[in-house]
Every structure is written in structure tokens, then in C-alpha cells.
């Protein structure tokens, strides 16, 4: 399996989600693309969640936050510059060769951290979740993406996300409150930049040498930015 990587130059969630989807076009059989990106002050809900059940949306937006909806499933998360997102984009048949679990465990090992996989899709360090993940399929491609909490503002998570409300509402995917923690609060002196480097080292990835199709990227960005997608989940 060969890998290419792209590091986003934006912290805008709509730009990044669009770029992630567009980068799927650059995968090939035996070639996966690793996309490393950060969203500043953003709540991202899952494909089938109700924004208003998941967070105090109006307060969050008023305070300067942004709300986005991703294509993959699962629960709501809070992103800021203390969190690193990574996407493993590949052909479906290559999925096993570049699985989320093995890659993230490899990255943790590279960083000198002892991480465990709990068999339920969570990566734990000292019994606490430091990374979450989800996937979606698009034609013959698959996007496996996840988060790594390095130094995220934990107060914001509890201030704006509302898993208790999520639990009560009907007809949407419910978020489950997790015992999450930051690598920094576990006493590790690890920077976002160091984690990014570890991804590149572990995969032996080259920088992706491709020109992004600006028109398609812009169209995807408009889609991710649209209220009908964010608030109604309609495509």
C-alpha cells in the first residue's frame, strides 16, 4: 500500500469537508490519501443528527462558533485547534490495508504512547477516549476519518454539546457522552505538529502531487455550507 498526504491550509470546516471529499478522487487501487486538517471552534454533527438536539446551536453560533454536518454517521463532536482530524481515503477494496485502527495505533506507538483498542471502535489511553472515528462510502471509495484530542478546550465541549438532550429526542442518531481526554492532560508533551509528522512517518507518505479541481471543490464547499444540508440534512 502506498500513501500520499495533504495538509490542509484552512481551518474552515466547510472548506475542509469539501477538500476531504474532493481528495477521494485522487485515490487509486493500492494508493490511499491521508488528509490532515483542523477546524477552528466548530461543532460537527453526524449525517443523521438533529443539530438542535446535539448542541446549544444558537448560543454557539452567537459566540462565534460554526456548525457543520459531515457525511459519515455517529455523534456530535467539538473541534478546535487543539484537535487534529485525519482522513484515510482509499478504494473500498483497500480498506483492510489502511484501517483506521491499525493506523492510529501505529501513530500512537510512534509517539511513544501506549494506546488500546476497545473493540468497539474507540482508541483509549489510560482507559479514556482520545480519538473517535466514522466512515462513509462514495462510489468505489471509502473515507475513514477521525479525531485526535491533543489540547482541545474541554470546557467548550461541556458548555455547548448536549448529549443528555440528544438521548431524549426521537428520530435521529443519538450522541453518547464519552469520557474523552486530551493527550496533554495525560501529561504528554505532544503538539499537533508532532502528531501530523507521526502520520507521515508511519505511512511513509509522499506529499500528494496533484492539482485540486477548483470548480468541484467550490461546488462541494457550497454544499457543505448550505443550511439545507447543515440544519435539515438534505442533499
Amino acid at each position: 500500500m502506498r500513501f500520499s498526504y495533504v495538509i490542509s491550509d484552512s481551518t474552515d470546516p466547510y472548506h475542509n469537508l469539501a477538500a476531504e471529499q474532493e481528495l477521494m478522487e485522487y485515490t487509486a487501487s493500492g494508493l490511499a490519501v491521508i488528509f490532515l486538517w483542523q477546524n477552528d471552534n466548530t461543532i460537527v454533527v453526524g449525517r443523521n443528527q438533529n443539530v438542535y438536539s446535539e448542541c446549544r446551536a444558537e448560543d454557539f453560533v452567537r459566540s462565534g462558533g460554526r456548525i457543520a454536518r459531515r457525511r459519515s454517521g455517529g455523534g456530535a463532536v467539538y473541534h478546535d485547534l487543539g484537535n487534529l482530524n485525519f482522513s484515510i481515503l482509499s478504494k473500498q477494496q483497500d480498506r483492510e490495508c489502511c484501517s483506521y485502527t491499525s493506523l492510529i495505533l501505529g501513530v500512537m506507538e510512534r509517539l511513544g504512547l501506549k494506546a488500546d483498542y476497545n473493540g468497539r471502535n474507540d482508541i483509549l489511553i489510560s482507559g479514556k477516549k482520545i480519538s473517535g472515528n466514522a466512515t462513509y462510502h462514495e462510489n468505489e471509495n471509502i473515507c475513514q476519518h477521525g479525531t485526535i484530542l491533543i489540547d482541545t478546550d474541554a470546557a467548550k465541549i461541556s458548555e455547548y454539546l448536549t448529549p443528555d438532550r440528544s438521548k431524549l429526542e426521537r428520530n435521529h442518531i443519538k450522541s453518547i457522552a464519552s469520557r474523552v481526554t486530551n493527550l496533554s492532560s495525560l501529561g504528554y508533551d505532544i503538539t499537533v505538529d508532532r502528531v501530523r509528522q507521526a502520520f507521515i512517518e508511519v505511512t511513509g507518505a509522499d506529499r500528494l502531487d496533484a492539482r485540486i479541481d477548483k470548480e468541484r471543490q467550490d461546488a462541494l464547499e457550497e454544499f457543505y455550507k448550505s443550511d439545507i444540508w447543515i440544519y435539515e440534512g438534505r442533499r
Binding site: G46, N48, G73
Partner: peptide
């Protein structure tokens, strides 16, 4: 399967194109 998105009555669907998606415990598929 956790959630299914389907079109509404009156919508048109086109052969070879997506008409909805399914979220399962593992993934979201068109």
C-alpha cells in the same frame, strides 16, 4: 442499521443515481 434516508413520494429517482442513504453502526452508504 441505525437510520435510513429516503426520498419523498412525488420525487423522481434516476437509474444509477443515489436515491437515499443508510447509516449503519459501521458506515454511511448511498
Amino acid at each position: 442499521v441505525m437510520f435510513v434516508n429516503l426520498p419523498d413520494a412525488g420525487d423522481t429517482v434516476e437509474a444509477g443515481k443515489r436515491f437515499g442513504d443508510i447509516e449503519s453502526i459501521k458506515t454511511v452508504s448511498d
